[in-house]
Design a protein around this nucleic acid. Structure first.
Lengths: 212, 212
DNA sequence: TTAAACCTACCGATTACTCGGTATTTTTAA
DNA sequence: TTAAAAATACCGAGTAATCGGTAGGTTTAA
């Protein structure tokens, strides 16, 4: 009954004794690793560099995260928590959701390294056998379902006319956000991704009969 | 005046004596390399594997492409040529352009490995000092300008009303296409990217006064 | 005959990860 | 309160594998 922490997707996290110092180190490492991943991607980053960034030897780092994959999954889980708590309050109705998306963008616009890290990870996860493949697929599916539900609810509410497909609209919205983010990442100084999203959303609302 | 083939973005290609067999090999290698890049990305692919794929030793491959970067740039240049010749005929007016985009999608839907390779490369190129950074930036800029010009032309034509910003519309269109492609790549069986693009375009045309 | 095509045999650098320890901190028990 | 006990936090020194690239040669084709 040895408590081996296999490649879990974040649940377990079992009860482990961890010192205050250790917890602090873990957060330090997570943050440093994300910066590295933002520069070189996951596959191409050396955890030895991350270790040096936080003033640790490589085995020292591996004490906290036994494998490189564990480190990656820890980052993804952390992001999951942060996002859920941020999006939550906006999920009331369709207009609220769209407003929330703009707020997410406004916030993301001030964390370019984090956004870049996740954009690169997102694409990397398309590779055969990538350890984050399942995480990104689950996440995309769930997000699409959530948004689709809000659209569908607006239809049954009568807020908008019934000619739309919630799933399809959700996909399009996600696509626009992802795409705008990529354009911004490639040229952050010249491209205004918040403005781009606002323009899209206001035209969308207009074409749905809800004007902004 | 040594003819060192520095990190060019594709011009030179100077005059070199090359045998028929050699040309054939080059194409073989290019195709095999793209398949590898589609699975593992550029950074994480081993050119040794590519060599074995075409029945060559590693130095045998390096005879044709002296460095890994040369191989990458050769792929990008090849793609450039193919794309230009395919898009060309569609660039008449705004409606033609949008129709052309759908055709591109229809075609891409049958070359998933190629599309995936370029999507991954695209994201990889965001990394610090990535050899394909300039290529992707140039390409995105040029594409956006082309599309923007077509939108602007439609405005001065009077085909659509003057309330739109060509550059912004172009960015949005590119974003939608990129984003839809990502969704499709993540789940090709369930997601219909051609339909998604058609839906977006027809709503776009309607909201511009041009109905499809 | 001459250059291209291709090979065997290397090399130096980097990588994730292990082994076997020491130092530090926290918990427990007297 | 304190000291033993125990777990955590770390490190120096490896290791096996992989990678891009080179040196120097032979074979093949124009």
């Amino acid at each position: 009954m040895a408590e081996v922490s296999e490649s879990n997707t974040g649940q377990d996290e079992k009860r482990r004794r961890r010192s205050r110092k250790g917890e602090a180190r873990r957060t330090e490492i997570l943050s440093a690793a994300m910066q590295r991943f933002a520069e070189d991607g996951y596959q191409n980053s050396a955890i030895g560099d991350v270790a040096r960034d936080v003033g640790l030897s490589l085995p020292g780092l591996l004490h906290h995260f036994p494998t490189k994959v564990d480190l990656l999954l820890a980052i993804l889980d952390k992001r999951d928590l942060e996002c859920e708590s941020f999006i939550g309050p906006y999920r009331s109705d369709l207009r609220g959701l769209l407003k929330g998306m703009v707020e997410v963008f406004r916030r993301n616009a001030e964390m370019i390294e984090v956004v870049r890290a996740f954009a690169i990870l997102n694409a990397e996860s398309l590779m055969k056998g990538h350890p984050a493949k399942a995480w990104f697929l689950d996440r995309a599916t769930q997000l699409q379902n959530d948004i689709a539900a809000t659209f569908d609810q607006a239809v049954t509410d009568g807020s908008i006319d019934g000619k739309i497909d919630g799933k399809a609209m959700a996909a399009e919205l996600i696509a626009v956000m992802d795409g705008l983010q990529m354009l911004w990442l490639r040229d952050p100084a010249r491209f205004d991704m918040v403005g781009g999203l606002e323009a899209y959303i206001s035209r969308l609302l207009a074409s749905l009969g809800l004007e902004g």
